[in-house]
Lab assay of single mutants.
Amino acid sequence: MDSLVVLVLCLSCLLLLSLWRQSSGRGKLPPGPTPLPVIGNILQIGIKDISKSLTNLSKVYGPVFTLYFGLKPIVVLHGYEAVKEALIDLGEEFSGRGIFPLAERANRGFGIVFSNGKKWKEIRRFSLMTLRNFGMGKRSIEDRVQEEARCLVEELRKTKASPCDPTFILGCAPCNVICSIIFHKRFDYKDQQFLNLMEKLNENIKILSSPWIQICNNFSPIIDYFPGTHNKLLKNVAFMKSYILEKVKEHQESMDMNNPQDFIDCFLMKMEKEKHNQPSEFTIESLENTAVDLFGAGTETTSTTLRYALLLLLKHPEVTAKVQEEIERVIGRNRSPCMQDRSHMPYTDAVVHEVQRYIDLLPTSLPHAVTCDIKFRNYLIPKGTTILISLTSVLHDNKEFPNPEMFDPHHFLDEGGNFKKSKYFMPFSAGKRICVGEALAGMELFLFLTSILQNFNLKSLVDPKNLDTTPVVNGFASVPPFYQLCFIPV
């Protein structure tokens, strides 16, 4: 009986604490739906499609509103004006990374994606500088992407125009580009180590996009005490870190300090320079996690976009025909596509942009946080508050993009057929937390897609009208449904 009384008292205290925290903070924060004790607004949000729920709530509470995930307040920004004001106009104040408990377990605050403060700034600055020195957006990395595009075309030829699921092959190409940047090595598509790495990356994007992960991140005790797919994700990350550590040891034994070959060499050189400046942010643990982040951000996002792009091109054969006509006119058949071609191919450029806009790969991006107490639109948001960005509300804005739910390359073309930029184009987020590999991803999408369409016609196994382009999961990332196609050599 005594234990029951204690339990009831504990629960009562928890409920009172929950109510007090919510009521004391709500006077400062933007308005929002009334949260339930302990669980907050979790029942009012469709976990399978958070973005749709945010759109519905914005119609009631406006472009800036507050939700509670458990006891934790989260300020939501919906629509271009609110997102721009926060991420661009007040970029420094909104540059923090929001709480992501599962990532905390995986990387302990290291790396480039989930770190904060001085650690994040130094690692991000170093990573950007190193990638630029190796030619991100310049010639040397373009050579690597072109080489991988040629290998991709050869792998597709091996399908002999038979029906195939493109998931694996389209994942190999961007993964190999990242391998060449980090390890100075590309792998054969049949290499077992490479296959294991690909498998872990593919599993992780599916797990991260599941409703279960949303629950884990908002009720963090689940991570330590409950079984579930989150444990598989943590094991996959541990596998990748151990693999990278092996490569780091190989580099330490063979590195030429006067001739760095890749990202690992550059990081080890930085560690050597910083060894007298303790404590340094440049450690082996930081290198492991930064490399894992580059793999995660640079492989599955690009391969998922490529997979979605081919599905949309199957669905819209008239678009595919126009792209192939432009390829034939500008590039021809006797040389590989290059980035200089893009400025002469406005329709193809528009298609690449429209694919990214339409699929809305990361509907709410990753959570941000404010780095200080900030007054925002007459609300006071306390330091450390998590900020949720609705990228969907920007990419699918119906004023900027008429009929935003329709796939239409003319969203990025003017009346004369010239490519038209849009400030609403934010597939990689915006501001200080914009994806480090934005330029690389854009290069890969253009070169891989043009190389495929230069060499193959795409054949659907069903009537294009019957192809479903609805994402199968739409949590962290929008993942396309399973499909097969035939690559018919031109």
Rank of each mutant, 00 (worst) to 15 (best):
L11P: 01
V319N: 03
K52F: 07
G228S: 08
M443E: 02
I488D: 11
I99F: 14
L43A: 10
K275R: 12
K235C: 06
E104Q: 10
I389C: 12
H353L: 02
L11I: 08
E154R: 09
F239P: 02
C266A: 15
V113P: 09
R307L: 04
R186H: 03
M345L: 10
G431S: 05
N231A: 11
G96N: 10
P464T: 11
W120R: 05
S127K: 02
F448S: 01
S343G: 13
S58E: 08
D262F: 00
H344C: 15
Y61L: 00
K138E: 09
L29R: 08
D414I: 02
R132A: 09
I181A: 04
S51I: 05
V462K: 14
H230A: 08
L201V: 14
I264G: 04
G109M: 15
A238G: 13
E354V: 00
F114D: 12
E281P: 13
A309Q: 01
I45L: 15
P409A: 04
K235E: 11
Q252L: 11
L312G: 01
N176D: 02
S478L: 09
T290Y: 09
K84T: 13
V237S: 11
V436S: 03
H396F: 07
T348V: 07
I488A: 08
Q356W: 15
H276N: 10
K247Q: 15
I215V: 12
Q324S: 12
N289E: 13
M240A: 04
S365I: 12
Y80E: 05
P471A: 14
D341H: 07
R342L: 13
E122T: 13
H316N: 11
L485D: 00
E155V: 07
D397Y: 04
E81R: 12
I389H: 02
Y68A: 02
T130M: 07
R307K: 11
R124K: 15
V6N: 05
G40P: 02
T159S: 10
L388G: 01
A106I: 12
M257L: 14
M198Q: 09
P363R: 03
R377M: 06
T320L: 12
P227R: 05
G384L: 02
T371I: 10
I223E: 03
V330I: 11
S478R: 13
V370S: 12
G437A: 07
K270F: 06
V472Q: 14
A441G: 08
T348Y: 01
F187I: 02
F263D: 02
P404R: 02
N204S: 11
S286Q: 15
L197C: 03
E142S: 04
S390Q: 07
D408A: 03
N259D: 13
R139W: 10
L391F: 06
D397V: 04
M240T: 07
R150F: 10
Y347M: 03
I169V: 15
I99S: 10
F419A: 02
Y61F: 10
P471S: 08
G417R: 05
T305I: 05
I389L: 09
C164R: 05
R144T: 14
D2S: 13
D262Y: 02
S162Q: 15
N277W: 10
L197R: 01
E154M: 09
D2Y: 08
G384R: 04
E438C: 04
R329Y: 12
R144E: 08
T301A: 15
K270E: 13
L485Q: 01
F412E: 01
K399N: 14
I389Y: 09
K48T: 15
G137R: 13
N202D: 14
R307A: 04
L312R: 00
R150C: 08
K160D: 06
P402S: 11
E274C: 11
D143E: 11
A149S: 08
R150K: 09
V473M: 11
I434S: 15
I207Y: 08
K206E: 15
Y80K: 06
R125T: 09
R333C: 12
L195Y: 06
Q22I: 11
N204T: 11
L467A: 02
Q356C: 12
V248I: 06
S180E: 09
I452P: 00
E415D: 14
T305S: 10
R26Q: 10
K72V: 05
N378P: 02
F428W: 07
K432T: 14
T385D: 00
I264C: 08
G27I: 15
L102P: 08
P279I: 12
Y61T: 01
N202E: 10
H396Q: 13
A350E: 00
L395M: 08
F94W: 12
N116R: 07
S53V: 10
N258T: 14
A291T: 09
G117K: 06
L234W: 06
V352S: 04
S140R: 07
V83S: 04
S95G: 12
K84N: 13
Y424C: 11
I42P: 04
E155T: 06
V292K: 04
S3A: 11
L314W: 01
Q356Y: 06
L445R: 01
I169Y: 09
A321M: 13
I327W: 01
I39M: 07
G296T: 15
K249H: 11
P427Q: 14
L128F: 10
E199V: 09
Q22T: 14
P481S: 05
P404E: 08
T283V: 08
F456G: 00
D256C: 11
F126A: 05
F456C: 00
N258D: 15
L395R: 08
V462S: 07
R21W: 08
A86P: 00
S115C: 08
D143I: 15
E93W: 11
P464F: 09
A161I: 03
S127G: 07
S140C: 10
L43V: 11
K273L: 11
K232C: 11
Q22V: 09
P227T: 14
K52V: 10
E104S: 13
H411K: 03
N334I: 12
H316M: 05
Q278A: 13
Q484A: 04
S393P: 08
D143S: 13
Y243A: 07
N41G: 03
G111N: 07
P363G: 08
F94N: 03
P346S: 07
S115N: 14
